[in-house]
Design a protein around this nucleic acid. Structure first.
Length: 468
RNA sequence: GGCGGCAUAGCCAAGUGGUAAGGCACAGGUCUGCAACACCUUCAUCCCCAGUUCAAAUCUGGGUGCCGCCUCCA
């Protein structure tokens, strides 16, 4: 498999440290609010990467943290008059509600900053020991000038950083250099602080990921991921911290997803131009959001709009139709007892598995992989009918599910039963149709549509589906 | 100022040297009592200019436009 490595600025063949084993760390949310669709992209993209690795036979150790120690959480707690822990606990719970809706599987572990303070303190101590950090009256800073390869990820020369940020880097006379960043912040409010060798305080933002990645996955990991906006300074600083501690490479592959835009501008909380997943879920099934995000290659920007979500919804139903047709035929097929042999055209469907894999192997090209699913879908749709034997139908379903499961789409099980009332309406309509009372049957069909039930008349009986 | 990205049909989106995937929308058709689903057909020469090449959306140079990072941010 080839992956675009930000560190090298090119696609590289992925070679794990241990054969058939992947260690990946992805920066998770700061839990002070519901997350928005821009935040959702990395959760979905890296979930697919993880699923794909598992699909091709890797064991995956996947760590995604929760940042539960942060200014924004403290501010939120102050606003709402509750404790920071209550804020973070609440939004961790809410995170899982939305992530579940998006079909994002749980990581191997979701460590919290507040539960890993020891690892963080240990790392800071080590950095001080290595001459890469210094304590000024209870605040500990990273000595950027001492880390020679600082800037290797973001391709920034330290002097350019200072120039570019002139006037924007806070004047902080405590620091030896404006580029130095905080590893440990001295206690101010009295809330959310821990004892440390430098007095009471709490960790800075960047150190948590370095410490937790090391604690859970070891000194060197295969993949570190996140949104493009984390490249600088967050990931650059993580490298400085981790490599400054261990003198070993931190991550071999740095993978970054592109933004979600609104009217071609980055969606961000500070700009206020965002849609939360929670709000979107009131209007449309979140699997559509997942499909929508996977319809572009992960590094390209995506423009978000309700209209595009509608397009995605229609496209996704097309895939559902194929699966439902297969299931319907399996249940109602007149030749259902005909075991038969798997038909030749079904056997040849493996060509789609091959091209699906080729697409995914090329830097996780989910857009192309989805196109393969549509081709598979079309061939199945045009090939199956009431004479297709059971084994062939089952094989079709198996291939179809195998590929859709990798992307995590078409994952909803169809309801088997309807309300008695609706069942009864369908029954009455059938009687009307037999009596050629089409005015009545159309009336009932319209009523059902009002209730969100779409009917389709087929040779083998009436099919129904829900529409949202 | 430094670093990076993008520009493909009405809309979305693949394709990085061999003559434009896929989806949505639209139009015509088959199927249907009518629909719906499905299927068939139709629908672009790839921002502009110059160059390299037998051959370029794909490479090179120059433009134009848009966006991002350098500051909390997925």
């Amino acid at each position: 498999m080839r992956l675009y490595n930000t560190l090298k600025q090119r696609k590289e063949e992925f070679i794990p440290i241990n054969e058939k084993h992947v260690k990946m760390y992805v920066c998770g949310p700061t839990v002070y609010n519901f997350f928005h669709i821009g935040n959702a992209r990395p959760f979905i993209v890296f979930d697919v990467l993880r699923r794909y690795f598992e699909y091709i036979g890797y064991k995956v150790e996947y760590i995604q943290n929760f940042t539960d120690v942060d200014d924004k959480i403290i501010n939120k707690a102050f606003e709402e008059g509750i404790s920071p822990t209550e804020v973070s606990e609440k939004y961790i719970k809410e995170y899982f509600v939305d992530a579940d809706g998006l079909g994002v599987n749980r990581a191997t572990a979701h460590p919290k900053v507040s539960e890993n303070i020891d690892a963080i303190i240990n790392m800071i101590e080590k950095l001080i020991e290595n001459g890469l950090a210094y304590d000024v009256d209870g605040n500990v800073y990273y000595r950027v000038a001492k880390f020679k390869s600082y800037g290797k990820l973001s391709k920034q020369a330290t002097k350019d950083l200072e120039n570019g940020a002139s006037g924007r880097i806070l004047i902080n006379t405590e620091k030896e250099d404006p580029l130095d960043f905080a590893l440990w912040k001295k206690e101010k409010s009295g809330e959310l602080s821990w004892d440390s060798p430098w007095g009471k305080g709490r960790p800075g933002w960047h150190i948590e990921c370095s410490a937790m990645s090391r604690k859970f996955l070891g000194d060197t990991i295969d993949i570190h991921g996140g949104g493009q906006d984390l490249i600088f300074p967050h990931h650059e600083n993580e490298i400085a911290q981790s490599e400054g501690t261990t003198n070993k490479p931190f991550a071999n592959y740095w993978i970054h997803n592109g933004y979600i835009n609104i009217n071609n501008e980055k969606m961000s909380k500070s700009k206020g131009n965002f849609f939360t997943i929670r709000d979107i879920s009131q209007e449309i099934d979140l699997e559509v959001v997942r499909f929508f995000i996977l319809s572009a290659q992960y590094r390209n920007p995506i423009n978000f709009s309700k209209d595009l979500l509608k397009q995605a919804n229609t496209a996704l139903s097309r895939l559902y139709n194929t699966r439902d047709n297969l299931l319907f035929l399996l249940e109602n097929n007149r030749n259902v007892d005909n075991e038969g042999k798997i038909e030749d055209w079904v056997i040849s469907l493996s060509k789609y598995k091959k091209s699906f894999k080729e697409s995914m192997d090329d830097d996780l090209n989910t857009a192309e992989a989805l196109a393969v699913l549509f081709e598979l879908s079309k061939e199945i749709n045009s090939s199956i009918d009431e004479s297709t034997n059971r084994k062939s139908l089952e094989e079709c379903i198996s291939i179809f599910n195998e590929l859709t499961n990798v992307l995590g789409v078409v994952s909803k099980n169809k309801e088997k039963l309807l309300d008695v009332e609706i069942e009864e309406m369908i029954e009455r309509r059938q009687i009307a149709r037999i009596n050629k009372d089409f005015a009545m049957s159309d009336l009932i069909r319209d009523e059902l549509k009002e209730k969100g039930i779409i009917l389709e008349d087929t040779r083998d009986g009436v099919k129904w589906k829900r529409v949202q």
